[in-house]
Design a protein around this nucleic acid. Structure first.
Lengths: 199, 199, 199, 199
DNA sequence: CATGAATGAGAATTCATTCAT
DNA sequence: CATGAATGAATTCTCATTCAT
């Protein structure tokens, strides 16, 4: 007979951390807030994690590795280069759609927090830029994209636009709706690619 | 008759704040760090500013109002809509070129720090997005830009790309050079507009 | 038939405690350090001992009772009083020679730690002073020792000198060698009994 | 006109620290205990000292440098070598007589706390041993002391005896009285220089 | 016996801000 | 204007101890 599912307090703590980080921001949340949200004792957070920082790092690494895999997969899968970029945009937008709190935390507290965790994870973040740049470079080689824009430059433009989009949603600068997510993604790709493609 | 210019300790403090915020980040700098950098006693910071936050706010507001004016001026000045966006990009890129520390602080600590000062200044930040959106909307009306992209959406894409570019420079993800600044700005406009313009 | 000797985890824990207490000091060692050193789960420490303090107490009492017995035996055995003191010195020096870590712990963490365990075991420690004092008193009665020094006072002088000697070895203030141990003990007795000035 | 005497909160804090360290022991006293005893705000302790450790270090260094000076002065002053040792003993005993709390703290928390501050100040402590050893060595050269005891060894014996004496007073193992202090010092010198056995 | 997850009290330290001089 | 001593709230992290399995 199957054992009762283990409480998996570690996961509980991570999930709770997402909720409170999203609500209050990393700096404003005390470790006790995480513990309270998770319904566990204070010290248990330190049983599973070295520090408060470590909790956020774990959250970031977990998610970012999926993004890196998705980008690399999009490239490896082949197909029209515009579709490859679309796949990347889709992955990111869907990540937000299905877990907006987590993506909010990752973008606000890591990716765009260049003086704190952004610095710590610069290598991994840069790797995303470079993987996207590779898609662009491939597209240029095959003639799908114009040649006069440096791949890394185009990658930054693309990624910056996507992230700005999520930021807009996160902070209610632009409205969201389920239909909107897909439309937004399409528009984004259209905007960027119709510029990238040769005339 | 004008008095001899006072040492203007207030300005000294603001400038010192830019330097240390850029170096250490806002959270990691103590009021005494600012005072040390400025060469004044740290009580003096409180003579001129209500709080540490207030110093950053002042820095942001000072600069951001220039940006808002520049965007609005770019629009008011008329001319091809593509050139209006180029003027905006030029202003931002030049702001960075001539005072990279200040722009670093503004972007890292305010514009992209959505859980702290970004929240506080959301209204002003949003106003920039909207002013850029207005340029796009005007362009659409005049037929210079395609109609199927919401102006605010296009604005976010454009601004996101510009900011990502600066971030790349700030954190050495992409190399910088004086020639590079102008070229980058051109490429950015090309990338975005050749996608925005009707075929 | 005798059972195979049990692993005797209790002893393992005590021995491990000696090693880590000697290395890091009592305050700086966590219960988990003891358990790690002993190769057991740290809950087991609490199976055998009431608390971390209790482990040190056990170590001290075990060893100190031997010392008390040795002092009392040295007196009971009779013989020249100078030899009785020599026997005490020999026992203490040999205790260090054969288990320096244990003696280090006892001296550093109990005997000379007057604000913590020294307080707790003051009665037993004082008993050692008094037993040595009794040897002196006997010696005075028999004319072997001068009468103008209070026995307890002389005892403190003697014990203080011995302990200082061990401390010197423990902290490498004075060099050690096997020959040195015996010589040191002899010199100590000579110094105390004959004095520094030539006869 | 002279200003009102400055409150000298720094001194107040040091004095308060002596009192609470002596009463409760270093480990058991919280920084707030020191502040309360001194009648100042919590944070002021950190205004004047880097840490709680730093407070004790200051106390030790202040006092120990006086001891070192006294030993060296005793030697430099010349006179019978026995008197030189007596001068050292007098200085130490009087230090205790006039400020028993401070000496308690220094002995209990530094000099005999070999796993914590004793380690930190080993160099200075050793220097005292060596300065006393120098007196002994001089005495041997001049024929005042026997030659078969290594100077450092004799120094350790002497110092150990003195410290044990203070410890006895501190922890009420041996009774104290003003007359007792001088007598004790004399007996100590007698014991070490003449020996326990009658001449 | 043995394990190590879970608990939570406790303490040091930081630093923005106030205010007397 | 200018100084920096004084304040004290706020929070992280440690670790002895308990206890369910």
């Amino acid at each position: 007979m199957a054992k009762a599912p283990p409480a998996d307090k570690r996961r509980q703590i991570l999930d709770a951390a997402v909720a409170v980080f999203a609500r209050q921001g990393f700096h404003a949340t005390r470790v006790s807030d995480i513990a309270d949200e998770a319904g566990v004792a204070y010290g248990l957070v330190y049983h599973y994690f070295r520090s408060k920082d470590d909790v956020l790092n774990e959250l970031f690494v977990e998610r970012w590795s999926l993004l890196l895999a998705a980008i690399e997969e999009a490239d490896r899968a082949g197909g029209p280069h515009r579709e490859r970029l679309a796949a990347v945009a889709t992955f990111i937008v869907d990540s937000y759609r299905y877990d907006p709190e987590l993506m909010k935390v990752i973008i606000v507290e890591v990716t765009r927090a260049a003086n704190s965790f952004g610095q710590t994870h610069l290598v991994e973040i840069r790797r995303a830029y470079e993987s996207i740049a590779k898609i662009v470079a491939d597209g240029q080689e095959s003639g799908a994209f114009r040649n006069d824009v440096a791949p890394l430059f185009a990658s930054m433009t693309f990624y910056g636009a996507v992230e700005q989009l999520l930021s807009g949603w996160i902070f209610n600068v632009i409205p969201t709706s389920d239909a909107g997510y897909d439309e937004a993604k399409d528009l984004l790709v259209t905007t960027i690619c119709d510029g990238l493609e040769p005339r």
